[in-house]
Each structure stands twice: as C-alpha cells, then as structure tokens.
C-alpha cells in the first residue's frame, strides 16, 4: 500500500510539474490543431486527386480519424527519456537517481505517468471528442473504448520499454542526438504513425507485422476504430496478446541491458 502511495506521489508531482508549464500547454494544443489542419488538407487533396473514395480499404474519413488520433497518441506518449538520461549521465546526476530507494526504471516510468495523465485529458480526450463529433458516428462508441484503454496502456508500456532500451546506449556512444533520431524515425515510420500501415506495400507491411512498433500506434487505433474484427473478443484478444508479448519481451531485454549499463556506470564512476 505504501509502495503504491509512493508511486502515485510521483504521478501527482508529475501532474503538477507539467501543469506549471501553462503556456507550453496552450501552445501544444494550438500547434496540434494547426498540424492536424495540415494533415487534413494534404489527405483531402490526395483523395480528391485519386478519384475514388476508398483506397486500400480506408475511406478519407477513416484515414483522417486514424492520423489525427495517431498524432494525439504521439503527444500522449512523447517521452524524452533518451535526452533525460544522456543529460543525467553527462552531469553525473545519474548516480543520485541510482541512490534513490527505488529502481531507476520504475522511477522513470512513474515520473512520466503524471505527464501521460495530463496529456490524456488535455490533449487526447478533447481531440477524440472533436473528431467523434465532427465525423458524426464514424467512431463506434461501445466496448471498443474500454478495449482501447487497455490497448493504450499496453502501448504506453511498449513505448516506454523501447525508450528505455534505446536510452542506455548513450552510455556507450555519447551520441544522444543520433540515437534519438534513429529511434524516433524508425518508430514513427514503422508503427504507422505517419502513414496508416494499410497504405504500405505488401512486402513492407508483412515485415512490420513482426516488429514491436505497431503495438504502439497501429494496434490501439485499430482497436479504437473496431477494424479488422477487433470488436469481437476473438479478433481482439490476439491483438492484445501481441502487445502483451512485446511488453514481456521488451521488459526482459530492457532490464538485462539496463543492468549491464548500470555496471558500466558504477565501474566508470559516471
């Protein structure tokens, strides 16, 4: 019980901290709106020029809902662990973190949940409501919302684990920017955040099936839109299963790698 209280205290502190960036919050909302307008016009022009309503099983509406919510999830999930950790390593602050009576991975995860909770209510929920109202019923409102929440939490853990798997590389290379950009590029492209996976050429799409990245964007969004039979448990469970599998695999790998990296810190003295 005290453990949970300690963890939620971190969440609370995170909420307060990220609320204090008040203008930042407003700017973020505004910036997202403009960005979404850009996405809208681009795809509208694309569909207008194509002459058909349906491309690769996606209507214009489907594509838009998908991309807008992908952007919202992107904001929700955005973490700067690679940057944080590299700065902490360079300044030697990492030692202080390691001395705290809580495991660093856990500590980082729960510190970020405050920002996640905020972003969920300040960015994702409003975006979702606006999209749902405008598209007038294109998003089904049933059990899929609950399934989506489960899938989103799994996505969040997968995303965190990808970050935590990549961040300690800074200990070995000093190349924070390079590592971060490689990670971000790969995640955004192969998770279907920039272009829905449905548009990918067949070969690429099959390759992506076997990678963890689609567990972050593609699966939660498919579940939310109740596509590909995910509105039935028979269709849903395999998808959640894939996410859960990646959670386990990445957590194990991340832990092993992190322990190895910590040894390097303690050997080198920061």
């Amino acid at each position: 019980m005290t453990k949970i209280r300690r963890l939620t205290a971190l969440t609370r502190a995170g909420i307060i901290e990220s609320l204090q960036f008040r203008l930042g919050t407003a700017v973020m909302l505004f910036g997202n709106l403009i960005y979404l307008a850009l996405v809208y016009f681009l795809w509208k022009a694309i569909y207008d020029s194509s002459g058909t309503d349906m491309v690769n099983g996606m209507t214009f509406h489907d594509t838009m809902i998908y991309l807008i919510l992908a952007t919202a999830i992107f904001n929700l999930l955005e973490m700067f662990i690679v940057w944080d950790m590299s700065r902490a390593i360079q300044s030697g602050e990492i030692i202080i973190h390691l001395l705290k009576p809580m495991r660093y991975r856990l500590y980082t995860f729960w510190s970020y949940t405050g920002a996640h909770v905020n972003n969920f209510f300040l960015a994702f929920v409003p975006t979702f409501i606006v999209v749902a109202v405008i598209t007038g019923g294109a998003i089904p409102m049933g059990m899929n919302l609950l399934y989506f929440m489960i899938s989103l939490i799994l996505a969040l853990i997968v995303n965190f684990n990808i970050e935590m798997l990549v961040a300690p590389i800074c200990l070995y290379t000093e190349s924070t920017w390079g590592i971060n950009i490689v990670k971000e590029t790969i995640v955004l492209l192969l998770s279907g955040a920039t272009i829905p996976l449905a548009f990918f050429p067949e070969g690429l799409r099959q390759a992506v099936e076997f990678l963890p990245f689609r567990a972050v964007y593609d699966i939660p969004l498919t579940v939310l839109l109740a596509k590909n039979g995910t509105d039935t448990l028979a269709g849903l469970l395999p998808k959640l299963g894939i996410q859960a599998l990646w959670v386990v695999v990445l957590t194990v790998c991340g832990n092993l790698f992190w322990n190895h990296a910590v040894k390097k810190i303690t050997v080198n003295g920061g």
Binding site: R12, I15, I16, L19, Q20, R22, T25
Partner: peptide, 8 residues
Amino acid sequence: LKGSIHDL
C-alpha cells in the same frame, strides 16, 4: 495541485 491549476 490546485495552486498549479490556478497558476495556469
């Protein structure tokens, strides 16, 4: 928490 909302 209330204070931060106020500051917002």
